[in-house]
Design a binder for these strands. Structure first.
Lengths: 347, 347
DNA sequence: AAATGCTCGTGAAATGTTTCACAAGTCGAC
DNA sequence: GTCGACTTGTGAAACATTTCACGAGCATTT
């Protein structure tokens, strides 16, 4: 159990009886080294179990072969899936990926950002909380390639970013419900101030207007968070309405809310979709797995991640020649049992 | 948009009119520097926006201030939660955490392990696929502190590890069902070869034996994977049984399977828990969020992560003085609607 | 006034890698 | 046998940091 210092190129060179420059050549430009020499070196490498020191390479090169994705919350499958997309592209480009989660805490976000700065990373993908933090702007000023994921920051709108059109998503969901004959629709979501919620609500209203219906077709049930518990509460409030005015369909700003609403309906013996239809947003894995599979607006999460990573690599490669771009994807409605049509209308 | 070389201690020293050693002292041993000098240096640091180069520090120190958690699949909330526990401890100890996911692919696992080796990390937490891989053993031989998480490898049983007693978990689940009067119980899970599945099944059998019942109370429905689709399939198979022999309760080796079974029951109009009771395993967030909240065996995931990180830090600190330890936690049964008792027995 | 002890600051050395200008060697052509 | 062209290998320099033995400056003691 002897713990020894990791062997260095120098050790390899000594063992192979060549200069240290030659070892480096074998590692980086093998074709410039005579076969006999090369194999001597390779053997020495194998015998010593030599592994290149990434810190030393980074120090020499000025920046590392690593990028980072700083997400809001990796325990949320939405971000985890984005991470997978990023990872795929990173791997293709021989870049290591460093995943971090700020867990929705500003302090943690700042900490990670400064860690990233210290690490001299190659680039950063980020879904941030505070886009005006000093640390973030310091990173940008340093010239670190950065791509914003899913949220497009106000003052940094000109920088590279990827996102999904949430207005379109809200429109898709509510248009679907209208097409299925619903004339009393609830929007469940909040806090309204969250850009995603604002946009999805705007899309809902747009759908109603486009259909030539009155605005009061839509009732808004604002929640204090986007989780299951709030969904249940909203469901209870909804059922508390006088029968006459009770919505026949619910569009939730995300799937967690929708699952909460669904749970409340099931517990209260209200049948879905017969009495109340439900549409969620995000199409997380558990939307399809729900007891009554959930109709949901799917965001191309994996694609989002891939596109973001590709933008980042382009930016890192081209340097100042790179032109910032904003990529916007279109969501897709996945219809499942929770909103199957009740009364047919000619389509 | 001038991209400049990051300022170094040397630049700071020049600006502050001191030697570079002094800057280093301000950074690492501020109390040894006269206040007037120190503030000159601090001002220079602020003006230049100096940030320490972690790669250079690592090179000098021999190993970095980072640890890694290589998980099977970070998109699985189970591992994400473990990650959070680890992160908490890492932060307390001023260590950076590097999250990686092998996505259940051996190739990726090996790739990450060699990346970790190159990075000269401070330590590694890992839930691996292949515990006999050359790369992993190379890491161990190098003396890298390693703690195994959730899976205890055969030949490496003497090393540090944390886990949960799955036999106990299986026992808890099935004992609960027996207590509730069930005398025909299905075990759904597979492939049986997976240690976790083996243990949970063994625990199930143990419960039956302890209760003094015949072994044939338990019917095993083996699945090819631990996901929702396989759960649905198992549910269908279960319903295909002749009424007389159909189990009145199902214990699933994880919650995904249980959600699949629940979904199939709902779709086929079989009421839960009246006709069939269901118990899952892991108590993922969506277990409580299901239309019919799921009874499940909870593993202390967060604690698991914390304990693992603490073991790792101890190992890294004490070096050869450290004694490897295996920490085993006890699972807990969370009873919810999906298995509420049908026939009361005196308890 | 010399010796001692203390505080504060210095600068060279070392960490592992890559690069690059150059040297050594070989071969062919004149 | 000298020159040039080409192949192959060399070793010093640079990257940013930390450490450590040492020295300068100063006050106190003998």
């Amino acid at each position: 159990m002897t713990v020894v210092r990791a062997p260095s190129v120098k050790d390899v060179a000594r063992r192979a009886g060549v200069s240290l420059g030659t070892v480096s050549n074998v590692l980086n430009r093998p074709e410039t080294v005579r076969v006999s020499t090369r194999s001597k070196v390779e053997q020495a490498i194998a015998e010593l179990g030599f592994v290149r020191s990434e810190p030393a390479r980074t120090l020499r090169a000025g920046s590392s072969r690593m990028i980072a994705y700083l997400a809001l919350d990796l325990a949320n499958p939405f971000f985890a899936d984005i991470g997978r997309g990023i990872e795929e592209v990173a791997r293709e480009n021989h870049l290591g990926l460093f995943l971090c989660s700020s867990n929705n805490e500003e302090a943690r976000e700042v900490e990670y950002l400064s860690l990233i700065m210290q690490q001299r990373l190659h680039g950063l993908l980020v879904t941030a909380i505070d886009y005006e933090s000093e640390t973030l702007h310091k990173l940008l000023k340093r010239g670190l390639p950065v791509v914003f994921v899913d949220r497009t920051p106000g003052t940094l709108r000109h920088r590279c970013s990827v996102g999904v059109d949430d207005i379109e998503g809200g429109d898709l969901a509510v248009s679907h419900l209208i097409d299925n004959g619903h004339r009393a629709v609830a929007f469940v979501g909040g806090p309204i101030a969250i850009p995603q919620v604002t946009d999805r609500l705007a899309g809902s209203r747009q759908a109603i207007e486009t259909a030539g219906l009155e605005a009061d077709v839509l009732t808004v049930f604002e929640t204090t968070a986007l989780n299951v518990a709030e969904g249940r509460r909203a469901g209870a409030r909804l059922l508390g309405q006088p029968k006459r005015r009770r919505p026949t369909a619910v569009f939730c700003a995300n799937d967690l809310l929708a699952l909460g609403v669904l749970q409340e309906m099931t517990l209260q013996g209200v049948s879905v979709p017969e009495e109340v239809a439900i549409v969620g947003y995000d199409d997380i894995e558990f939307a399809a797995a729900a007891a009554i599979p959930l109709t949901s607006v799917r965001q191309p999460r994996h694609l989002l991640g891939k596109a973001a990573a590709e933008l980042l690599i382009e930016e890192a490669l081209l340097g100042s020649a790179h032109e910032h771009r904003q990529v916007q994807y279109t969501p897709e409605l996945i219809v499942r049992a929770s909103s199957r049509r009740r009364s047919r209308r000619v389509s």
